[in-house]
Design a protein around this nucleic acid. Structure first.
Ligand SMILES: [Zn+2]
Ligand SMILES: [Zn+2]
Ligand SMILES: [Zn+2]
Ligand SMILES: [Zn+2]
Lengths: 134, 134
DNA sequence: CTTAATTTGTTATAATATAACGTTTGTTAT
DNA sequence: ATAACAAACGTTATATTATAACAAATTAAG
């Protein structure tokens, strides 16, 4: 009976709740500010929770923004393979769920024949809304 | 007569030289340390040079490492489309030059039919050397 | 219960990056 | 050449992001 669903600790649950409620990616110190009423006082408490949540695939880090977003892709293999679209104007971020893309990248071989299990892809452009407004 | 070759300023040239000589990506403060003998004293001088060098496509930022590497891909469209392989063990970083991959990603349409001109892809795995040593 | 592993709390500090300001240098057009 | 503008520079201070170190508390397993 493999216990698949990890049991989150108190701080991990608090941090995850904030991130899941947010409309977009949150920065660590913005998370800290938001959870201070719930007893988390120091950056490290936030970073530790973030580390664990990333490890188990509940959230991802948007590297180009140093921000954290909840995983919306249930098929995500534990943070191994991630792809996002990022709007240059409104900063809207969306996790891309596209089987063809993920297959293509997971099977990609570089010129030396090497394959990679893990990748992070960030696309930049204008989201629909921002494109219309221009 | 369009002057295609940008003329670099003094600081930009100094910073670029350091990065081009390096075997791998350099961090901003490591660059700063390396160029202090050449008159650059403050972080901002380095960051300004880095910004410009990225803008004209001479270097790229490895987002997952907060480090900077010289462009080895002459076809790189001014930092618009970048892909790297990163070794989890020895931290070796290599820019991927693969026409199929770049075409695939440049033409990629997400589920809403949106295309992206700019992207950054970072693959993680074990480089050849490290794989052998295991 | 006992032991080991994980999580927590706390303080301090490291590492990365930008704001603000005035000066200097380089380019362009008259 | 020189006025006008843009780009780059120098400098100080500060903001932002992230980790080290250590002790206490909690949880999971035998
Ligand atoms: Zn995901
Ligand atoms: Zn937008
Ligand atoms: Zn390049
Ligand atoms: Zn390696």
């Amino acid at each position: 009976m493999t216990q698949k669903q990890e049991q989150l600790s108190k701080n991990q649950q608090i941090v995850l709740n904030i991130i899941e409620k947010a409309k977009g990616p949150l920065k660590a110190y913005s998370i800290l500010y938001n959870v201070q009423k719930r007893g988390i006082k120091a950056p490290l408490q936030v970073y530790r929770a973030l580390e664990k949540l990333i490890e188990i695939g509940k959230i991802h880090k948007i590297e180009s923004k140093n921000a954290f977003i909840a995983c919306k892709n249930s098929d995500c293999e534990i943070s191994k393979a991630t792809a996002f679209s990022i709007c240059n104007n409104c900063e809207h971020v969306k996790e891309i769920k596209n089987t063809k893309l993920s297959k293509y990248l997971s099977n990609f071989e570089d010129n030396s024949g090497m394959k990679y299990k893990k990748y992070n892809l960030e696309f930049f452009g204008l989201c629909k809304d921002c494109k219309l407004k221009q």
